[in-house]
Amino acid sequence: MADVARAAGVSSATVSYVLSGKRPVAPATRAAVESAIDELGFTVNTAARSLRTGRSSLVALIVPDIANPFFAQLAAILQEELRGLGIHVVVCDTRARREEERALLAEAVQQGFAGVVITPFRLLPRDIRTLTDAGIPTVVSADVPFGPVDLVTPDARTATRQALERVTAAQRRRIAMIAGPRDATGGDPRLELLRGLARQFGTSLPRELVIRGEHTREAGAEGFAELMRRRYRPDAVFCVNDVVAVGAMDKARELGIDIPGDVALVGHDDASFASLVHPQLTTIRYPAEDVGRAAARLLKGRLDGRSVHRTVRVKAEFVARASA
């Protein structure tokens, strides 16, 4: 680092600030330091730094399904935001299994990770104490509070209301939902939000029109088929996420049911494929980019010594397309 400082004509502390991103550096100074780094082929010795600071250079991102584009995008943004600190992100896919989630928490402690960002699927708030008791900075991304930890959570009330306005304006009153499993973390807050708001539009979400399953395309297809076997078929179906919605769309096509002519379909998340399917998917956009940046800011604060936990609410947006 001293060689880089001499070549750039700055102090070693300034080089450290450029590498860590912990303090602002003038653009011209940053450019000089980066040029010196390139010329000298300087790299950070992360192993030595870990021995010196007692902290790893790795952060675990634990998600239930990395095949879901939402989580893939979240991973990319988180890595981009943390790269300036010399921190790398290890992505861990739990496949929505509680035993895998708990095993990965234990592994994060065993490996001494610098931090963990997690979207729990079947964990309980007490499980997160595995991390916090070990002093590992932790950020939870979830729809429900998760104890005394930093939280990134959606603010989807307005967007959900707008989705219901669109559906009911088309004289659709038999609202259904393909929701998550009963044992998912915190129940299903998206279902409860939809159910509560439906009453304001003079309709309801009866128990017989709620189908529960995993957050998968297959579960979406099975759930839609089940709804179409009901005596009173729904004329609008909300889905817990876009992956489930595409499964429902697959089954509708197989059954000869027109979307949106026979049944309106609404997803959640606005995954990258939502505008590519036919018909294009109407959805509630929960921006993975904003979630990733919020999680990175919270984690940086913890790494810098902040002790008070914080909650960041990320605004969801209604995206009207052809399916509803």
Results as ranks from 00 to 15, higher is better:
residue 304 D to R: 06
residue 175 I to D: 00
residue 250 D to M: 06
residue 293 R to I: 03
residue 7 A to L: 15
residue 280 Q to T: 15
residue 23 R to Y: 09
residue 55 R to M: 03
residue 58 L to R: 00
residue 296 A to V: 01
residue 172 R to I: 10
residue 272 S to H: 06
residue 294 A to G: 11
residue 85 L to W: 12
residue 163 A to M: 08
residue 1 M to D: 13
residue 266 V to E: 12
residue 228 M to R: 03
residue 317 E to F: 13
residue 19 L to E: 11
residue 153 T to D: 14
residue 272 S to K: 07
residue 186 G to Y: 02
residue 50 S to W: 01
residue 187 G to C: 09
residue 59 V to Y: 00
residue 302 R to I: 03
residue 313 R to E: 14
residue 198 A to V: 08
residue 122 R to Q: 15
residue 123 L to S: 02
residue 157 R to E: 01
residue 45 N to V: 04
residue 270 D to C: 10
residue 283 T to E: 06
residue 217 R to F: 13
residue 121 F to M: 05
residue 130 T to Q: 01
residue 91 V to C: 00
residue 196 G to E: 08
residue 177 M to K: 11
residue 95 R to W: 08
residue 144 V to D: 10
residue 282 T to V: 10
residue 114 A to L: 04
residue 258 D to G: 13
residue 315 K to R: 14
residue 82 L to C: 07
residue 7 A to K: 10
residue 90 V to H: 05
residue 206 P to E: 08
residue 261 G to Y: 06
residue 144 V to Y: 08
residue 187 G to Y: 02
residue 29 T to P: 07
residue 285 R to L: 05
residue 272 S to Y: 06
residue 226 E to H: 13
residue 77 I to H: 13
residue 125 P to T: 09
residue 115 G to H: 01
residue 220 G to N: 09
residue 7 A to I: 04
residue 301 G to R: 10
residue 176 A to G: 03
residue 204 S to A: 14
residue 6 R to N: 08
residue 95 R to Q: 15
residue 24 P to H: 07
residue 91 V to T: 00
residue 242 D to M: 13
residue 10 V to R: 03
residue 152 V to G: 04
